[in-house]
Amino acid sequence: MNLSKNYKNIFLAIFLSFVLSACATQTAKKVDSQMQGDVYTGTDTVEYLADGVPDRVFFATNESVLTTASRETLRKQASWLRKNPEVTVVLEGHADERGTREYNLALGERRANAAKDYLMTYGIASSRISVISYGKERPVDSGSNPLAWSKNRRSVTVKAN
């Protein structure tokens, strides 16, 4: 009687540990699948300018280089802008909280301009695009962890009219 109860407990413990570790790996995977290197690839914070046209692109730490995914997003934005010639946009450049305030202002400006340059290569007139940097002043995710920071390193295309 006692023995079987002990076995039961052991089984329960083993079972629980399986469940728990499964949970743990699942969350870890989920986090991983939202970042490539340290660039955010998820969609949690993304809004859409139109159907299938994401409003933002993400950057690696201290970088302003556009990733393949970012270029694809910006090409979608460019083609949408070509179809809607009356629309003007503001590109808002942002940095994460792990940098000094003044440098981050410059970095945000550099990121937004990287996006602007790409839109211009796809035929959008510079007169339709303005740029503003918020540095680290306007995070979308208030977390203090790598995933949150990856969501905050971004350039967001916002309709201005």
């Binding site: 202002l105 400006e109 550099r110 937004a112």
Partner: peptide, 9 residues
Amino acid sequence: MSFAMDGNS
């Protein structure tokens, strides 16, 4: 001060 233009400060 710094002045930022076209991605360059």
